[in-house]
């Protein structure tokens, strides 16, 4: 009896594999369309923390955080703008911390905590000239992994389904094959 069941189980499972053997002869080829194409970076480069002591343009405004005479504003997915607020009437951006995949921030003492994709990173901000990453907890927030700002392009329409073995750090418009679509 056992062997009869096993036999049918194997037949049944085999039928599941069947579709993968076909070369999808009936499926129409993907069309060339105007859409969004991912910009990839190697993970170790995408996760580099860099401080630029120079005002940078804001691309997509995100969360704000007040700390002493400074205001920090997230540039969604790109990093953190540093704003000198010593004299509010003259407050302005003075620098930018590149933290790709970043959306959240909190500060205590000399340390800034932020997410970089799904990781929790700790930055020592005591001395801007020597601003650096002091620790990183990989995959601290597993759900951010598929939920970080550049997982999908901002615009609706066709986009190239991103590869899962690389990090997306932006999107550009191009002529692409119509494989993914954002409503």
């Amino acid at each position: 009896m056992k062997y009869v069941l096993l036999f049918f189980a194997v037949i049944f499972l085999y039928s599941c594999w069947e579709p993968f053997k076909k070369n999808y002869p009936n499926q129409a080829p993907l069309q060339k369309v105007w859409g969004s194409k991912p910009v990839y970076a190697a993970e170790n480069i995408a996760k580099q923390i860099i401080y630029t002591a120079q005002k940078q343009p804001l691309k997509k405004a995100g969360n704000i955080y007040a700390f002493g005479k400074f205001i920090f504003q997230i540039d969604v997915g790109r990093g953190i703008h540093v704003i000198d607020n010593a004299d509010p009437a003259k407050a302005d951006r003075i620098g930018f911390i590149t933290v790709n995949g970043c959306e959240q921030i909190s500060i205590r003492g000399a340390y800034l905590y932020a997410n970089s994709f799904a990781d929790l990173v700790t930055l020592d901000i005591a001395n801007p000239a020597n601003l650096r990453e002091v620790s990183r907890i990989p995959n601290a927030f597993p759900q951010f992994r598929f939920n970080y700002p550049f997982v999908q392009p901002e615009e609706k329409g066709y986009f190239t389904c991103p590869r899962t073995d690389s990090v997306v750090i932006g999107w550009v418009k191009d002529s692409i094959y119509s494989d993914c679509y954002k409503n």
């Binding site: 704000i64 002493g68 921030i105 909190s106 003492g109 927030f141």
Partner: peptide, 28 residues
Amino acid sequence: ASAGKGGSLTRFTIAGSFLYAVDNNYLY
């Protein structure tokens, strides 16, 4: 005293000597 202040849309917050964070389903 030594922490700053975030807005109301944040998923990170510091209280005392703990950082609390939420992703879609979890509190850490």
